[in-house]
Write a protein that binds this DNA or RNA. Structure first.
Length: 119
DNA sequence: AAGTTGACGGATG
DNA sequence: TCATCCGCCAACT
């Protein structure tokens, strides 16, 4: 059986987020097969080593806001990385999700709500 | 070993 | 719009 831990599954999903697009913590959790585990995603990213190649900056809060961090500079860093990929933040410094949210084709059964929403 | 905490999110008031 | 509460999991104390 795939013995991937929850964190590995989360990282697998984050790795798939395309450049110039973003996904919310909750969305990553759902795609990783861990519905309602948004917090777990946050913790998984929290423990990433600074030299990681994972595009962690493409994960933002559900409304597009950059999640509060222990060190304010980290938030600024994330913002710069996103802008560096061509993403234009709105006046409040949030990512306009309707424009940059990642819409992967491979949706799971548990994503029925998402499908209904975009209809 | 038990309680606290945290890069969340949705519901509620 | 803002403040709280609660669910869910793993790392820390």
């Amino acid at each position: 059986m795939s013995e991937r831990s929850s964190y590995e599954r989360i990282y697998d999903v984050v790795r798939r987020i395309p450049r110039g697009r973003v996904a919310s913590y909750g969305q990553v959790a759902r795609l990783a097969g861990l519905p309602r585990h948004a917090r777990l995603v946050g913790y998984a990213l929290h423990r990433l080593p600074g030299e990681t190649r994972l595009p962690w900056h493409r994960v933002v809060a559900a409304e597009g806001r950059i999640a509060k961090r222990a060190f304010p500079d980290d938030g600024r860093w994330q913002r710069e990385l996103l802008e560096g990929e061509g993403i234009e933040l709105d006046l409040s410094g949030a990512v306009p999700m309707e424009r940059y949210a990642w819409r992967p084709r491979t949706r799971r059964a548990s994503d029925e709500k998402e499908k209904a929403r975009r209809a």
